[in-house]
Design a binder for these strands. Structure first.
Length: 453
RNA sequence: GUGGAUGUAGUUCAGUUGGUUAGAACGCUGGUUUGUGGUACCAGAGGUCGCCGGUUCGACCCCGGUCUUCCACCCCA
């Protein structure tokens, strides 16, 4: 019995029409990366779980796709743990590999492993797919592509500025209206410190991250529920109510955080970034958003998030600075900063907003109708000549009915069809039909090449 | 992971208070036109009504489970 074919939840096939659009996105992003001097690398789809685990927080660990060990994996597992049926405890005994969750952690691993071959600061880009065992929704897939750019081995804030320029350039080219939201983990740490709750930084950031979604009252409720004392929540209020320009906000927050060393450092970093950015004529709106937190555990400085202005979807790009990601792999004190463009969400935005440039999705410019063996033999050398001239062309592989061949050309959106039968072979003049206009002309091979080139 | 919805031809959707042959449009195939597509006309193919089980004389319809897709939460690209 034939089974109905299907693919796993949250994964997708891409047909030719989709690939044309996806490649357009990848190429655009890649070209921008190159103009800023970044170099490509690739890493394996699977990593050792020890590389991946613990880097993304508790939530992240749960979302890792883990691969069963090869062979008789149960034989090596602890019998008592098996009897307990405790999945989380047994996991590391039966699985030691997993699919990568992002490109940043594998990159850190790559840097440590190849440190002797790398010229620092190392600017690399990496465009590959990643996997998350998330529950799929619109704009959320289990397999998706990230386009990462990172600089590692430099703590200059110029890198942050450069990343913003890259964001600006990419979305300008893709014609998507976006806002870049920025914050700094040091400011968040300073806030937690200032209100006397440095240990609660995670709870605080997670709660205030929801400010624009659930409102001030509910954020306060959540903070209290997480065990923050009322007075700490009260102290937080002026921070949550900040408004005005980025400069204004920074001035105010600087005053509030003046007793916190990290806090002041964070504010100064942001001031520098905005300062350097000012003369650069970046068109994208940059907004200091003190409620931006981002979950990934490894961020320590600036954090970025890019939202599309004309469509409701999660962030389409995100990233930040990580001061010690390589430290866990035995290479301390190497700071990096990077961002990741979410190609699949960018695709969704462009699809919904119909932002693709009007370019022909045809892969073939010219189709030769196949009239039979003789005509076919006559055409093949012509096809070779055309291809040498850089014209993409094909001949219908069998002498099917003319209608069928024309229908094929039409469906493939092939703009020109060449007809070569008895008359054409005798005269050496090929009948060329313009499929859009419906006009026909008789041309020599030379004329044909000139017309289509 | 929690909660809610969804699933009928290739596609978008009708439909049946549970009753025998399940419909439309578009698409597809063939013909009108064996050297001319996108228009028109004619004909035709295509569905075990997501899957498994239960209730029933009888289930596409009711019930349970399961999977898919979608929505909210969570988190994030």
């Amino acid at each position: 019995m034939a089974q109905k074919p299907s693919i796993p939840k949250g994964t997708r096939d891409f047909g030719p029409a989709e690939m044309v659009k996806r490649n357009y996105i990848f190429d655009t992003i890649k070209n921008v990366f190159k103009t800023f001097g970044y170099q490509p690398i690739e890493t394996p789809a699977m990593e050792n779980l020890s590389t991946l685990m613990g880097k993304y927080g508790e939530e992240g660990d749960k979302l890792l796709f883990k691969m069963l060990n090869s062979g008789d994996f149960l034989a090596k597992a602890d019998a008592n743990l098996l009897a307990e049926r405790n999945s989380s405890k047994i996991t590391n005994q039966i699985s030691e590999k997993g699919l990568r969750y992002d490109l940043t952690v594998p990159f850190a691993r790559f840097v440590v492993q190849h440190r002797n071959d790398i010229q620092f600061p190392f600017k690399r880009y990496q465009i590959q797919n990643v996997w998350r065992a998330d529950k799929p929704q619109k704009g959320r897939y289990r397999e998706f592509h990230q386009c990462d750019v990172d600089v590692i081995g430099s703590n200059s804030l110029l890198n942050e500025v450069e990343l913003i320029q890259i964001i600006d350039k990419v979305f300008e080219k893709l014609n998507i209206n976006v806002v870049v939201k920025m914050n700094n983990r040091k400011i968040l740490a300073g806030i937690a410190e200032t209100i006397g709750q440095p240990d609660k930084i995670i709870d605080i950031t997670v709660a205030i991250d929801k400010l624009d979604k659930i409102g001030l009252d509910k954020v306060n409720d959540e903070l209290l529920a997480k065990g923050l004392p009322q007075e700490a929540v009260d102290q937080l209020q002026p921070i949550l109510n900040l408004s005005g320009t980025n400069t204004k906000k920074l001035e105010q927050i600087k005053e509030v955080l003046k007793d916190s060393e990290v806090g002041v450092k964070g504010v100064e970093e942001m001031e520098t970034v905005f300062d350097w950015l000012t003369p650069l004529n970046v068109k994208t709106e940059i907004e200091l958003d003190l409620t931006l937190a981002r979950g990934l555990n490894y961020y320590t400085g600036a954090i970025f998030e890019v939202k599309a202005l004309d469509m409701q979807i999660g962030s389409i790009t995100g990233g930040g600075r990580y001061d010690d990601l390589t430290g866990v792999f035995g290479m301390p004190d190497v700071s990096g900063v990077g961002i990741s463009f979410g190609a699949d969400r960018i695709y969704d935005v462009m699809e919904q907003l119909d932002l693709y440039p009007k370019e022909s999705s045809a892969t073939t410019q010219l189709l030769f109708v196949n009239f039979g063996k003789m005509e076919q033999a006559w055409c093949l050398p012509v096809l070779s000549q055309l291809r040498d001239a850089g014209i993409s062309c094909e001949i219908y592989p069998q002498a099917a009915k003319m209608k069928k061949q024309m229908t094929y050309a039409n469906a493939r959106k092939i703009p020109f069809v060449a007809l070569v039968g008895e008359n054409e072979m005798a005269s050496g003049q090929i009948t060329l039909k313009d499929m859009e206009k419906g006009e026909q002309a008789n041309l020599t091979v030379g004329e044909l090449i000139n017309k289509l080139k």
